[in-house]
Design a protein around this nucleic acid. Structure first.
Lengths: 227, 227
DNA sequence: GCAACGAGTCGCTAT
DNA sequence: ATAGCGATTCGTTGC
């Protein structure tokens, strides 16, 4: 049986991290979780969802939970990262052993939205024909590449959420430039659309200025229009 | 006194999230933490550092920890997000109340690296003079803008980690294009450098092709050279 | 191994 | 509110 575990400590501690940066977490009350694969997280009590400190899978722990020692140390040699936990008090702890590990299923990812669009390109323009998903260019993959009736390539950049960053139209423009210098598309006029449920003002302005299109599409609507 | 709290549960549950996407976490053994501000995280036992599900600060919880109810629900109205926890077993739980909340201090952020470079531009080129930090262009801020002896602007894009993405040289190129059409820099020849501890092969090729520079600088070395 | 990119990204700063 | 961007980003997929 696939048995996994974790240890949860509620402690007063200060912490030093060294590795990709150096960090010091001053003395305070924290929840500290170490998983059986060596991964660990440190949470303060109510300051959002992000941990204050953490260590990746593969970390090796020494003196963990040993109340006679006042420094617990985790080291990850491959990455040369180190977390030193200076323990002042162990308020509480909890051992977790588990045998059931159901999977996480997500609906509404960008990939899925892209699937639905590729299956029904009429949503974008009439008479488009699919060429390839994740069409490779030297500067990255085009989500959906199609051709219109005249044989001109049409690149679609699909986003699951409202787009605001200007890097999105720039990214699409790079793909089009790449197609323009691709012998396979010699003597054609590549076009491109951003496909997303919404777009920010600045991003829209850039999109227009570059001659790109924006098509408003929402995952929920795609689903309800789906056969 | 600033008292904060959290509740930690070790439970067998399945979970449904709806909001920005729809997700289902199948039945399994999980660590579930709710903080006093409503934020919550759900962790499986050892599958890396990222939570399987979470809710942001401001979430309102109903029937939390009530073992007579088998559905605990958190809702965030502002964001219309909802997390439903179908509880099969409560293996363990832990109440955490804390009064000490030391701060997190980080050394080695990009901003700090940028500070050190701005203080000693000789690290980049001789005879550079600082013009401005975070110099505003219509397409985003330039980390460090300087001028060389001839009065030509030199833009620096600082990264604290090795750069691999091609968007970095493209971003810098956009900044330079912006300077070229900026009346303040009329009749000058803007140049630019990426400053980072390392660079990927593809990224380097693009950087060279665009006529940009790359300068290898490491936070640790900056510190040790610092007075 | 590197590279490119999405993410329910989060969280911060400045307009 | 919006925008821009860093992050000890993490995690996945493809080459």
């Amino acid at each position: 049986m696939d048995s996994r575990g974790a240890q949860v400590f509620y402690i007063r501690c200060s912490i030093r991290y060294s590795g990709r940066i150096d960090a010091e977490l001053e003395l305070g009350d924290r929840i500290f979780i170490v998983f059986h694969d060596g991964a660990a997280i440190v949470h303060a009590l109510g300051d959002g969802v992000k941990p204050k400190n953490w260590m990746p899978s593969g970390t090796q722990w020494k003196d963990l939970g040993d109340t006679t020692k006042n420094i617990w140390v985790g080291e990850h040699q491959g990455r040369s990262e180190k977390l030193e936990i200076y323990v002042e008090d162990v308020w509480n702890d909890m051992q977790c052993f588990g045998t059931m590990h159901g999977r996480l299923i997500k609906l509404g990812s960008e990939r899925e939205m892209s699937d639905l669009i590729a299956d029904d390109l009429d949503l974008i323009e009439l008479d488009l024909q699919l060429v390839e998903r994740e069409y490779r260019t030297p500067v990255g993959p085009i989500d959906i590449l199609a051709v219109d009736r005249k044989g001109n390539p049409v690149a679609l950049e699909v986003k699951r959420a409202r787009v605001t960053g200007v890097e999105v139209p720039y990214q699409l423009l790079r793909y089009l430039d790449s197609l323009r210098s691709d012998p396979r598309w010699a003597d054609t006029e590549p076009r491109g659309h951003i496909v997303a449920p919404g777009i920010g003002r600045v991003c829209r302005a850039e999109t227009d200025r570059m001659g790109l299109g924006f098509i408003r599409l929402d995952y929920a609507n795609l689903i309800s229009n789906s056969p």
